[in-house]
Amino acid sequence: MLYPIIALLAGFIILVWSADRFVIGAAGTAKNAGMSPMLIGLTVVSFGTSAPEILVSVMAATTGAGDLAVGNALGSNIANIGLVLGITALIAPLPVRSKVLKQEIPLLLVITLLAGGVLYDLYLGQLDAIILCLSLAGCLYLFTRFQRNSEGDEIHEEEDEIPELPLGRAIFWLIAGLILLAASSRLLVWGATEIALSLGVSDLVIGLTIVAIGTSLPELAASVASALKGHTDIALGNVVGSNIFNIAAVMAVPGLLAPITLEPVVLWRDYGTTLGLTLLLTALALYQRPPKISRFEGGLLLAAYAGYLALLYNMNT
C-alpha cells in the first residue's frame, strides 16, 4: 500500500504544478493569437483548470475504471461549489458584478440539467457523450456571444491575470504542461485504484472524494489567489466555467472511450448533490440584491460539502 500512497501524493503535486504551467502556456499562446482577456478567462483558463479532470478521466476510462471517471466529474463539481467557493467566500465575499458571469451561471444550470437527462437511464454511452460534446460546442459559441455583447462592462479584471509571454515560451509551457498532466494523471489514477482495492472501497467513491478533491486543487488555488487580489469575478467565473467543462467534457470521456452502466446511487446521491449545489449557487449568486456570496453563505456551502462527505462515509462503512 506504500507505493500507491506515494504515487497518489506525487501525482497530486505534479498535477497541480503542471496544471498551472499549462494554464500559463495556454493563456499566453491565446493572447499572442489575439484572443480578448475576457474570452481567454471564460475558455482557456477554465479549460486549463479542468485539464486534470479531463486527463484523469481519459486514464481511468482507458484502464477500465469508468466509474472513477464519472465520480471524478461529479465529485469535482461538488467540490468546486461546496469546497472551493465555500473557502474562497470565507476569505473574501464574492459580489457578482460581471454581466458575462450573470449569463454564465444560468448556462451552468442548464448544462447540469442536461447531464441529468443523460444519466437518467443509468447508462453513459457514445450517444450520451456526443450530446455532451455538442453542448460544450454550444457553450463555447455562447461564451463568444456573451463576450461580444459585454462591451462596456465595467469588469476588466481578467487582463491582469493573463501572462505576458513570448510565443515560443508560451508554446513550450503549453506542451510541457500537457505532457506532465498526462503522466501525473496516470500516476494518480493508478495510486487511487490500488488504494481503493486495498481498502475495499469502490472506484466511484474514490473518484468522488480523493481524486475529485485533488483535481479541484487548481480551481482552489486560482480562486483563492484571485479573491485575495480583489478579482472576485475571476474567482467565481473560474469555478463556474470549470464546472461547465467538467460536465460537458470530462463526463463525456467514459462514454466515448468505454461506455458504462451506472449504479442508481450515482443519480440520486451524486448527481442530486451536484444539481442541488448548482441551484443553491444560482440562487445565492443571482437572486439576491446585490448579487453576492457572503462569508455566511460561503460557510453554508462548506457545510453542505461536509454533509455530503458524511453521507458518503456513512454509506460506505
Rank of each mutant, 00 (worst) to 15 (best):
A65E: 05
G11P: 08
L42K: 06
G75Q: 00
L134T: 03
E151C: 06
W17E: 13
N246Q: 15
P166Q: 02
E159F: 05
H156Q: 12
A183K: 04
L167E: 03
K292R: 14
L181F: 03
A283G: 10
L236R: 04
D160V: 14
I40L: 11
L142N: 14
V16K: 11
A92G: 14
P166H: 03
G138A: 01
K99N: 08
P163T: 05
S202W: 02
V240M: 04
G117E: 13
I234D: 00
L301Q: 06
F47G: 09
L199C: 12
G125E: 03
T261N: 11
G125M: 05
F172H: 12
S150F: 04
I54T: 08
A10C: 13
D153F: 01
V253N: 09
G168E: 13
E104M: 02
G177S: 12
A170S: 10
D20A: 08
I155D: 06
L132I: 02
N72Y: 06
G168N: 12
D203L: 15
A7M: 05
A258G: 14
A227G: 07
I162W: 01
G191M: 09
G177H: 06
H156Y: 09
L300D: 08
S242D: 01
L267Q: 15
L142K: 09
L90V: 03
G255H: 03
T215R: 06
I13C: 11
P264C: 13
V201S: 13
T273N: 08
L83N: 03
R148A: 15
P264G: 09
W173D: 01
A303T: 15
L181M: 10
Y308Q: 04
Y271F: 11
R21P: 11
D20F: 09
D233L: 05
N32H: 12
T278H: 02
V44Q: 07
V201G: 15
L165F: 09
V23N: 04
I260F: 01
G207P: 08
V45I: 08
L140G: 02
V240E: 01
R21V: 14
A227H: 06
E164R: 07
P218T: 12
I234K: 04
E219G: 03
D128K: 09
A306S: 14
P291Q: 00
G64T: 14
N77D: 03
S135L: 04
L39W: 00
I247Y: 09
I14W: 10
A61T: 04
M251D: 10
A30C: 02
A69N: 08
Q288Y: 04
